[in-house]
Amino acid sequence: MENLVKGEGLWKTYDLGGVEINALRGLDITVNKGEFVSIMGPSGSGKSTLMNMLGCLDNPTKGDLYIDGKKISLMSDKELTKVRSEEVGFIFQTFNLLPALTVRDNVEFPLRNLSGEKKLNKSSRRERAEECLKVVGLEHRMDHLPAKLSGGERQRVAIARALVNHPQFILADEPTGNLDSEATENIMNLLHLVNQQGTTVIMVTHDEETTKNTRVMKIRDGVLVEDQAETLKETVIPVPYPA
């Protein structure tokens, strides 16, 4: 399978007032296109640092990181911003929707960041945002503000927002961490559906339940201690979530 993410000997060292803390210690990681990867590990294990690097928000102190063949570790802030706008879809634990914007505007927002040939006019942006909201079953909530939605609905909006720019992969940072069990099941079904349609999903989670049918990677003390590459098995396609 073709590599989407390839990290070799990734180190991240923070200088906290003269004390050096190694969040990652030579971690190697490979994620193939089309995979659903769950990253697990205790607090302080380096999960968030790894997610920040995969999301092009941070550079490794040492080591090389490639995303879709591009060497991220040498990119400038401007180049990283471009990669984030085109290649990555983010889903956060606390949803991080923009409160002043309607659901439709929130989903449309990443499309404003596209430039060059990928740039879309307003009506195309709107159309694509509405398509994504249909995918997550929220077409009837398009004109609502995020404050009027439930947690599960907000996360579905966040998923639509992550999908709207047709990213290479979705980075989900504990996407079900703030949801009840029913909403968790819906969101996981949705993420699997997205994955089955070809989008790679990399998810950080603490909840073993959500790692079913995913390739689980376990991190401890900044290194990869377990990689269940073979876990991804044939599964029944999840049932669609309720509208």
């Binding site: 999301g55 928000l57 802030d77 401007k78 911003t81 471009k82 984030r84 706008s85 085109e86 990555v88 983010f90 956060f92 991080n96 923009l98 409160p99 927002f109 990443p110 404003r112 960041n113 927002r161 720019n165």
Partner: peptide, 16 residues
């Protein structure tokens, strides 16, 4: 702050 962080994360340019 958090909104700006979110915007930057999803690819909004600094000048925007």
């Amino acid at each position: 702050t958090k909104e700006i962080g979110t915007m930057r994360a999803i690819g909004t340019k600094k000048r925007s």
